[in-house]
Amino acid sequence: MLIRLIWSALLETLLMVGAAGAVSIVLGVLVGAGLVFFSDPALGRNWPVNRYLRLDQVLSAIVNVGRSLPFLVLMVAIIPFTRMIAGTSIGTKAAIVPLTLGAIPFAARVVENSLREVDRGVVEAALVMGASPGQVVFKVMFPEALPSLVLGFTLTLVSLVNFSAMAGAVGGGGLGDLAIRYGYQRFRTDVMAATVAVLIVLVQLMQWGGQALSSTVDRRR
């Protein structure tokens, strides 16, 4: 009974984190690359559109709006949008919509930071060798930042585990929801303890896996 409860809650958490993680990482890469590209004078800062409308500042402002809402507020505030996308505002699938929307700005900043850490000398060397701004981003910045990006994505996924615990508020299920409904409201200390243990193990495994993958792709040592 206990095992079955936890198993299905774990699967719900993994579904939410996996789906929201995949989509937010893809979009975070695009937004993060845009933030760097349009703010760098050597890349896209001097694009004609940027003379009238600073695309990097627009993107940055949008990202900041997303980052300033507490997840619980975001989730409730966008219920109409969630209904439009998922067809319903209740359940695990519906919870993926706010989770994704909440994680995109986070992932975008993670990507931005990693790309900005790339050695300026290497970027300028590529430009001097006749690389176009697009080639600098995709052939120099992303490959050079790869170990740091992998760690950043790990951070994003772990944050999503945290966010997903709040998805219970919209009937999203998952481990956090189980801990509140059984562990807290029904005084099932065994469920609470087991859930906490599973969450700890889950996060440890994710962090360990992320670090292992990052060092595997790191050629700097």
Binding site: D119, V122, M129, G130, A131, S132, V217, R219, R220
Partner: peptide, 23 residues
């Protein structure tokens, strides 16, 4: 693009090498 084409006529050797560490 014209500048990038012209830059191929000039090879640069840097003080800090500036090699791509992941290649």
């Amino acid at each position: 693009a014209e500048l990038r084409q012209a830059q191929r006529n000039l090879g640069v050797v840097f003080q800090h090498f500036n090699l791509l560490s992941q290649r």
